[in-house]
Design a protein around this nucleic acid. Structure first.
Lengths: 341, 341
DNA sequence: GGAGAAATTGAGAGCGCTCTCAATAAGGAT
DNA sequence: ATCCTTATTGAGAGCGCTCTCAATTTCTCC
């Protein structure tokens, strides 16, 4: 199939380039007769407009990017990201945008490749996965493209982002455990140089304090969102004989469960457990894990919508959209029944 | 920061547009003096070439796409895809291409959105995830863009693809089980309308036959690559009291393990187990699973390289690249020791 | 039927860049 | 110093499209 241009179609239909353009772009002021004639030629030839040419003049590519900076842990292991991409993709599909995905594995990658993606002209907008690394702020101001963060970025203000209410989510987990009568509640945190990790710990702390429960720094073990890290953190924690453990991610709960089993303890009989994410199936976990569910798909979808808002309506004051979490009560916390509040 | 064009830079440096273009594109025939003068201006202004304009004339966007058609199962749950994307991304980064990701969730998505992606002008090339749906062949011939399949597509010949030697991988698993003395070896298959599922079953069959083991159709239970499907398949299978089960994916092994546990059987004492993928950690599985490892990252990387070959050197006769698998022997098969061959 | 308003169409500029080709500058050989 | 070869530079066309604006056609109404 040869490649036709607008010009060719115009010639074949015996009209001007402008008229063909109008038909293609569904402009109102075209007579029915012309429209049909042109459409017929387009049909016959299989003409498809050249997107680059179109982008050049319209200054829009209908391309938005998802950027995963170096130092984002677990892209290849955490089910979080596929879910995020799912939500983002759905929104892109719905609004007629195409998604680009930039994964940076090293400092070098980022230095050399980021400019291509952040320069004006390629992408209409960018969703950046937030990281603990705050050094982006200096660069970001030079981006020629609207952007928005997925997750609250650390050390940067005045940017738009979507996030999940991690603090409240953690709080609700602890509140539930407290409600069930546990007093000595430990936590395995995520990496504390990320807002996610820090926020979830803060929710823990706040709930513990408000309820006058035992707040002992020895009941807090920092891990790094990995199964292994959590395993070792839990090993340490178990020496304190906590009654319950709040683990800041389900993936980490895997490691904690392993540690608990090795001690010969039973969940929830000997020790209660609450996770965060609700991304892993029960079979994965081997336990009906009570966990804090976050609406990651919606989250990604919303990120796209906010970005498109900026793209289509121009710069906006920074906006934050925070999604609520939901405590999903299963067996591992020792109570199959949800309770009020 | 205002936006500068080539023209602006030329004016500021007191040279012609062509000279600036040469400097930017590192053409050889530019005098040192001019080069330095222009580079200085570029530095000062922060000029970045407009990619669309460049693409319009060069007919290259440096964009390649990964297309996941509707009907590809488990994109959001199977760790296979993140690994694939990892390999693809690394290759893209290395070769200076940007990746687009198109996920189609429905027939409608595909009908409306695929043309955008397959039309000439947007992407330089496409990697298509192979599916069981053969109906693509009719469309594919109309694509204006070079493409290659990830995985062997069903019902299409004359296309290039990368794949893993699924047949041989399954064969090696059965061979090992046979070597260990198991005679009654069952299998939980993947979806048999996919080449992956079918090939692995074929490897199973071939190994069983060559060794004159019990080939009983009741020892073959079709599942669909999901944990649940495998769980039910295993339930059925266990009634036949097999000595060993080859499960066509690790994700499915989860379901099988669950079924086995429910029967009160021990792995590998009562029943041996071999999986396929080597993507799940031991903690996930609760068992040190013997499995067939496939080099998915390399696979994705190679797919990009083959695609770039076509993009840069023009159309080529269909090529297939098949990667070998590796049997990773752990505890679940009842032998911690690898054996020769 | 004709003036004026409204709808439709086409000419042409321009988006920012690459690349060919001719013009100019520099270098070598006699 | 002069002529020829080679390296460097600039002018200008053109990639395929959109969009403004003026020209043309069609419609209304008296």
């Amino acid at each position: 199939m040869p490649d036709y241009t607008l010009e060719d179609i115009a010639k074949l239909a015996g009209v001007s380039r402008a008229t063909v353009s109008r038909v293609v772009n569904e402009h109102p002021n075209v007579s029915e007769k012309m429209r049909l004639r042109v459409q017929e030629v387009i049909q016959e030839t299989g003409y498809q407009p050249n997107l680059m040419a179109r982008s050049l003049v319209s200054q829009r590519t209908k391309l938005i990017g998802l950027v995963i900076p170096r130092g984002v842990h677990g892209f290849f292991t955490d089910p979080y990201f596929p879910k995020l991409i799912e939500g983002i993709s759905q929104a892109c599909n719905q609004y007629g945008y195409t998604l680009t995905l930039s994964l940076f594995f090293s400092d070098k990658d980022e230095r050399e490749l980021l400019p291509r993606v952040t320069q004006k002209g390629l992408l209409d907008g960018i969703i950046v996965q937030a990281t603990g690394l705050g050094n982006q702020s200096s660069i970001i101001s030079q981006w020629g493209v609207p952007f928005i963060f997925a997750g609250r970025p650390m050390g940067i203000s005045d940017v738009s982002y979507v996030d999940v209410d991690n603090r409240a989510g953690a709080y609700s987990a602890i509140a539930h455990l407290a409600h069930l009568g546990y007093n000595k509640i430990a936590t395995v945190t995520g990496a504390l140089n990320t807002t996610v990790g820090a926020d979830r710990l803060e929710g823990y702390r706040q709930a513990i304090q408000e309820r006058n429960l035992e707040l002992d720094e020895n009941l807090i073990a920092e891990a790094d969102f990995t199964e292994f890290g959590a395993y070792f953190a839990a090993k340490k924690l178990l020496k304190q004989s906590p009654e319950a453990i709040f683990v800041a991610s389900d993936t980490m709960a895997l490691g904690v469960i392993k540690a608990i089993k090795e001690e010969g303890l039973l969940i929830p009989d000997d020790i209660a457990l609450v996770g965060f994410d609700d991304l892993l199936s029960a079979a994965f976990l081997g336990t009906q894990l009570t966990t804090v569910r976050q609406p990651i798909g919606k989250f990604g979808f919303k990120a796209v919508e906010m970005l498109l808002d900026i793209i289509e309506n121009g710069p906006q004051p920074p906006r934050r959209v925070i999604f609520d979490t939901e405590l999903v009560i299963r067996e591992s916390c020792g109570s199959p029944f949800p309770y009020g509040n």
